[in-house]
Amino acid sequence: MALGRVLVIGLDPVRIPGWDPEPVVAAIARGQARFADHGVEADMCLVVPDENAEGAIVEALTRKDYACVVVGGGIRKHEPLLELFEKVVNLVRQHAPGAAIAFNSSPEDTADAALRWLR
C-alpha cells in the first residue's frame, strides 16, 4: 500500500553564503535515502529566503498532490526566519489543504517526521 507522496521544504545549503554546505548536503542525501528505504516518494523544495522563496514553495506545493509536507529546521529554528516559517505553514494550508504538516529535527530524520503522519 502506497503511503503517499511527501514534499520537504527547507533551506538550500549550497546557496546560503558564509558556511560549508557539505555536511548538510550529505545529511539531506542520507535523509532522502531513508524515504526510499520506506518506499515513500519525496520531493525537495530547497529555497533561499531572499530569492522568491514564496513563489518556489507555491510552485512546488501545486506541482503534485502531497499527503505530507515536512518543514525543515533551517526555516523553523532560526528566529530571523520566523516570518518565512509562518508563510510556509500558511502556504501549505492554502495550496495543499489535505496534506499533513510535519517537522523534522535534522535532515536525517525527515522520513521519520513524515511517517508519523503517513501511517
Rank of each mutant, 00 (worst) to 15 (best):
G55Q: 09
G55A: 05
R34F: 02
F103V: 06
P97V: 04
P17G: 09
I75P: 03
D37T: 13
N90T: 06
F35C: 10
L11K: 03
P13W: 10
G18N: 02
A27F: 07
Q32N: 07
D12L: 12
R15W: 04
E41K: 05
I9V: 15
A111L: 03
R93F: 11
R30M: 10
K77I: 03
K64C: 10
P17S: 09
D50I: 07
V88E: 01
G73T: 11
R5D: 01
A2F: 10
V47T: 07
A36C: 00
R15I: 03
A2Y: 13
I57M: 14
V48S: 04
D43S: 07
F85P: 00
A100G: 05
E51N: 14
G74Q: 08
T62H: 04
G72Q: 07
V89H: 13
A100S: 14
E86R: 15
A60V: 07
V88Q: 00
W19F: 15
H38P: 00
R30V: 07
V70C: 08
V40K: 00
P107L: 00
P13N: 08
F103A: 13
L7S: 03
L84Q: 04
L84M: 15
S106K: 06
G10N: 13
A113V: 05
W19E: 13
A99P: 09
F35P: 02
L61E: 05
V6E: 13
T62G: 07
R119I: 10
T62W: 08
I101D: 03
A102V: 12
G98M: 14
G10S: 12
M1T: 13
L11T: 00
G74I: 09
A111D: 05
G39A: 03
G55F: 06
V70F: 02
C68V: 08
L61H: 04
E41F: 02
V48M: 08
D109I: 06
G74Y: 08
A56V: 03
K77L: 13
A29G: 08
H78N: 14
R34T: 02
A53Q: 05
L3F: 14
P21I: 11
I9P: 03
R116A: 06
I57W: 01
K87T: 13
G55Y: 06
A102G: 10
G4Q: 09
E59C: 04
V71F: 00
A42E: 05
D112F: 00
R76T: 11
G72T: 06
C68M: 07
H95N: 15
V71R: 00
A113L: 07
H95S: 13
A67K: 11
A99I: 11
R76Q: 14
V47Q: 04
R93A: 15
R34D: 11
C45R: 06
E59V: 04
Y66L: 12
V58R: 05
I75G: 04
E22C: 00
V47N: 06
V14C: 04
M44R: 08
R116I: 06
I28N: 02
A111T: 01
G72I: 02
D50N: 10
E54T: 12
I16N: 05
D65V: 13
N104S: 14
E83R: 10
I9Q: 07
L115Y: 01
C68W: 01
R34Q: 12
A99T: 13
L11P: 01
P49R: 09
